[in-house]
Write a protein that binds this DNA or RNA. Structure first.
Length: 419
RNA sequence: GUGAGCGUAGCUCAAUUGGCAGAGCACCAGGUUGUGGCCCUGGGGGUCGCGGGUUCGAGCCCCGUCGCUCACCCCA
């Protein structure tokens, strides 16, 4: 028995409808905010991710699916979507204009991690990028769109957390102070923090160990070390979030795991999820384009985890384009007619289901009921001899005899007015 | 990479001290010459994850192994 790879999943009928719903709603709201879709390859040169995400990050250090192809080139299954999008923009010269470029994408990402609730090795993200000016109103518009998106999906409660982690101009100064303070507190901190202190001091801020909290709260916050430009940027973001009546909390301990972020970072969490409680996250990445050899263009973007949205979605019956009519021929003698009729109905845009097995009427109706198809067309040799057909309404059980013609059938299942 | 919990029918789970592998749901058939849901009757289905060991006898005890789940880590 061969079965699926750890951390992957088969999305089956009954579950996939939620995904279609989610993706359809995403396309809808992206269209309203002026985004166009982009699709990039599922694998890239390894170097793209190393340079953008950062050599020392966990993603690059231990989570990438990296392999050599037959020409010995090192390739990597994409662990995130921003770097490939920016790469594609540079390569196809989409950044030539001076305006704002808004793109969205959706698709699978890959990270080699131990699976748990809401976390998979192949997982799906929907994300968007705004390339162009370094304008804080972009940050606000993206967050507003996401809050609207959550409301339309009826996902609640959720919390928006924002922070500013400074820019290459002011962050080094902050990191120096942070390092010094952490070193000072090190004896009182947990083993993980002791390790992080040297590998990635920002992550110490993210520690959840109870006994560390008091010490961590006493550590300096990046917000207190922002340069003039970063401070103004963050102030404008907050002012306009307030204007739009968007509830948020400033979380000076919000740290992101990718090195390209600067200035604004944000995250939306929900306790509808498990321990992995982030529905989505994102931030500003002004230096990314240039570091990948493109023009000096600013960027802001986010990615949301589809699996996590599915977990948070209200427990409802999601839409399925189920067949409108089930053809139940009685015996092989009527099958030719059934095939022809199904074809005619479909040409008239009727969703028709035809059973191919030689099943009893009882089992065919049971099947139609199980698929919740609203009408069944029943016909045996007697009916066909008279050019008639039985049309049964599966909801109320009523049944009428009609002429075996497409126009009659359409009238019967869609009502007199429809066509 | 680390830790814990769990692997018995398609699904959810029982099985006393180690003593003939079960139920509900689902599925199929019949009750109805050609009519679904509700009800009744019957039926098909099992490498008890896998491999060793102990024992007259193992789903149960022991060792190993694989898988799943959750959590740590990290992130979407």
């Amino acid at each position: 028995m061969i079965h699926r790879i750890k951390g992957t999943q088969d999305l089956l009928p009954g579950e996939i409808e939620k995904w279609q719903y989610l993706e359809q709603k995403a396309r809808d709201i992206f269209a309203r905010y002026g985004y166009m879709e982009i699709r990039t390859p599922i694998f890239e040169e390894t170097e793209l991710f190393v340079r953008s995400i950062g050599q020392e990050t966990d993603i690059v250090q231990k989570e990438m699916y990296t392999f050599a192809d037959k020409s010995k080139k090192s390739l990597t299954l994409r662990p995130e979507g921003t770097a490939p999008v920016v790469r594609a923009c540079i390569e196809n010269n989409l950044l030539a204009g001076s305006g704002t470029l808004k793109l969205f994408y959706m698709g699978p990402m890959f990270r080699y991690e131990r699976p748990q609730k809401g976390r998979y090795r192949q997982f799906y993200q929907i994300g968007a990028e705004v390339l162009g000016p370094d304008n804080p109103l972009i940050d606000v518009e993206v967050m507003e769109m996401l809050v609207r998106f959550l409301e339309e999906l009826e996902i609640h409660p959720y919390q928006l957390h924002i922070n500013s982690i400074g820019c290459p101009g002011c962050r080094p100064k902050y990191l120096k102070v942070l390092r010094a303070e952490i070193t000072h507190a090190l004896p009182q901190l947990c083993a993980d923090c002791n390790r992080r202190a040297s590998t990635n001091p920002l992550r110490v801020l993210d520690c959840k160990v109870e006994t560390d909290q008091a010490h961590i709260n006493a550590l300096p916050a990046s917000l207190d070390y922002l340069c003039e430009d970063c401070r103004t940027h963050f102030a404008v973001v907050q002012r306009f979030l307030n204007n739009r009546d968007i509830h948020y909390s400033v979380n000076s301990r919000l740290v992101r795991g990718l090195d390209y972020y600067e200035k604004t970072t944000f995250e939306i969490t929900s306790d509808l999820l498990g321990a992995q409680n982030a529905l989505l996250g994102g931030g500003r990445y002004n230096g990314l384009s240039e570091s990948l050899g493109g023009p000096a263009i600013s960027g802001f973007g986010f990615a949301l985890g589809e699996e996590r949205f599915i977990l948070a979605l209200p427990k409802e019956d999601y839409f399925w384009m189920r067949p409108e009519v089930y053809l139940a021929p009685l015996g092989p003698a009527c099958f030719d007619f059934a095939v022809t009729l199904a074809s005619q109905l479909r040409r008239n845009e009727i969703r028709a289901f035809l059973e191919f097995g030689d099943k009893s009427l009882k089992s065919q109706l049971r099947h139609a009921d199980k698929l919740r198809i609203p009408f069944a067309l029943i016909f045996g040799t007697e009916e066909l001899h008279r050019k008639e057909i039985q049309c049964k309404n599966m909801r109320d059980g009523t049944q009428v005899t009609i002429r075996a013609e497409v126009s009659e059938i359409i009238r019967a299942i869609r009502g007199d007015t429809a066509r």
